[in-house]
Structure formats: C-alpha cells, structure tokens
Computed example of a mutant assay.
Amino acid sequence: MSKDMTIRNAEGTWVVRAGGAVLGETRKALELNEEGLASVVYFPRDDIAMAFLDKTEKVTHCPKKGDASHYSIVTKSTTLKDAAWSYEAPLDAAERIKGYLAFYPSDTLAVERL
C-alpha cells in the first residue's frame, strides 16, 4: 500500500440505502483513504443485495487501484445509473478491496454508520 493510500477496517455497523430501501448492512466494511480525497467505505458483496445491481459497461481507471467496474441500482421508482463500483482485479496496493463494492452518495443513496 502506498503512503498516500490506506485501507483499514471501518469501525461499527454500516448500511447502504437506495430509494429508501436497505441494500446492505455490514460490520465488515473497509475504509479507504487517499490523500486529498474523501474517505470511501467499501461493503463486502456478500452483505449487499446484488439482485438490485446491474453491471454496466462503464469502466474507470485509477493508477493506484486499477480498473473499476460500475453498477446501476434498480429501486422501486428509478434506476440509479453507475451508482456503485468495484475493483474486481485490483492492483496489489488495493488487494483488500477485492470482492467489495463502494457507492456514490446522493439524494437517493446513503452510506451511513449506524
């Protein structure tokens, strides 16, 4: 892991909600911190209702973490396009987040510590 990127166990219980529905809750979240950026909480896939996520064609690249696949979230009332991402084959420095998902908070999507 580089000096300007750290990954640690996120303390407590974390929940992600979209359109008012709980998509996941975990005590096994990871918190990734990169210098100059807001912290990001990653949820294990096993703790997310993956039936509500559809993989999209969007892929972004981070020189520290690798290529990120994106997912849209389907709620009762709308589809949140590219609202989640995952590093499915992360670079060595980010290996701990393999199998985890992160979410873009918005007016209709919340990531919260309980």
Rank of each mutant, 00 (worst) to 15 (best):
R96I: 02
P90M: 11
L91V: 12
T75L: 08
D67P: 07
S86H: 03
H70S: 09
T79F: 08
T79L: 03
A93V: 13
V15W: 03
M50K: 14
S69K: 13
E35W: 04
Y71C: 00
L23E: 02
D46G: 14
E35N: 05
I7A: 02
T78K: 15
L32T: 02
Y104G: 02
V22A: 09
Y104N: 00
R113E: 08
A68P: 01
S69Y: 11
S106R: 08
L80W: 03
A84G: 07
A89W: 11
G66R: 14
A68M: 10
E112H: 06
D92E: 15
K3L: 11
E95P: 01
P44T: 10
A29D: 04
R45G: 06
D92V: 07
V74W: 02
A10N: 00
E34V: 07
D47T: 14
P90R: 10
Y42E: 01
E57Q: 14
F52I: 11
R113H: 06
E31L: 08
T60C: 07
E34S: 04
K81G: 01
D46I: 14
V41S: 00
A68V: 12
I48L: 14
D47G: 08
D47H: 11
E25H: 06
E57K: 15
T78Q: 15
Y104E: 04
T56I: 06
A21E: 15
Y71N: 02
L91P: 03
S86G: 09
M50P: 00
F43G: 00
F103P: 02
T6A: 05
F43T: 07
K81W: 03
L101V: 15
V15K: 07
R45P: 00
S86M: 09
M1A: 13
D4W: 07
L101W: 07
D92K: 12
F52Y: 14
M5H: 10
S106Q: 13
D92C: 03
I97G: 01
K64Q: 10
V15F: 06
T6L: 06
A29Q: 04
S39H: 04
P44L: 09
M5F: 10
D107W: 10
S39D: 00
R45M: 15
P105I: 06
D4S: 13
E88S: 09
K65C: 11
T26L: 08
V40Y: 00
D47R: 08
L114W: 11
H61F: 15
A102K: 05
A84Q: 02
N33G: 01
L101E: 07
K98Y: 06
T26Q: 04
R17T: 12
L23T: 13
A21V: 12
S72Y: 05
L91W: 11
K65V: 11
I73Y: 04
K76Q: 14
V16K: 02
G36S: 11
T56M: 03
S39P: 01
G66F: 13
K65T: 10
I97E: 05
